[in-house]
Design a protein around this nucleic acid. Sequence first.
DNA 1: TTGTGATCATCT
DNA 2: AGATGATCACAA
Length: 224
Amino acid sequence: MHEPASEAELLLRARALAGRTIAELAGLHALPLPDEPRRAKGFVGELVERALDVRPRPGVAGPDLPRLGVEVKTIPLTADGRPRESTFVCTLPLGRIERERWDTSAVRAKLARVLWVPIEHGPRVAWAARRVGTAWLWSPDVDEEATLRADWEAAQGLVARGGIDALDARRGAALQVRPKARSGRARVRAPGEDEVPTSTMPRGFYLRASFTARVVRTCYPGGR
DNA sequence: TTGTGATCATCT
DNA sequence: AGATGATCACAA
């Protein structure tokens, strides 16, 4: 196997996964199922990347497939096609966010092209029996891009002005900022008031479920 | 410790 | 119930 060399190849591989359960995929790749799924939150995402032969690239920022400019994301969907969770995009570069611009941001690079891989999610299906759905490729349309940009620039501006303490998950129509850390005690440096750096918790950019719900409605091959 | 993959658990 | 803030595991 080799990494997908084109969007067509990537999509073909992803769609070949449709209908398989988590347990089946794990078996195909000789991966033991976690005893406690609650403690293996990234397992499904990593399993799908493995199944697509999309390899992790340590130390490299940007999309999972840099050559194609495509990011792979699993998304848990209920039977009626609603996302169960928000979607993590990337960490806030708090140490250098003052110098960031939307056009060259990691958020924009990652969301420019996304392969969404739906994962069945409901109270009646056991974790290991969840099935992969039909994947699709997406790019933000003009309105979505404008919304993402406005949210990103608002967050960037606030942090750059030393307002990290005022930045919570209630801001942002589509893109929000939430804690992203090993524990509540984790700390990183961020711009503070009067040029004095402050210490705060690490944050990440997330896509609100209301936003991805719209993406699903307009793009999911299964309709809905 | 930071970045990758996310979901958990509590609050409103 | 949906949203917010907190947390889990792993690699380098």
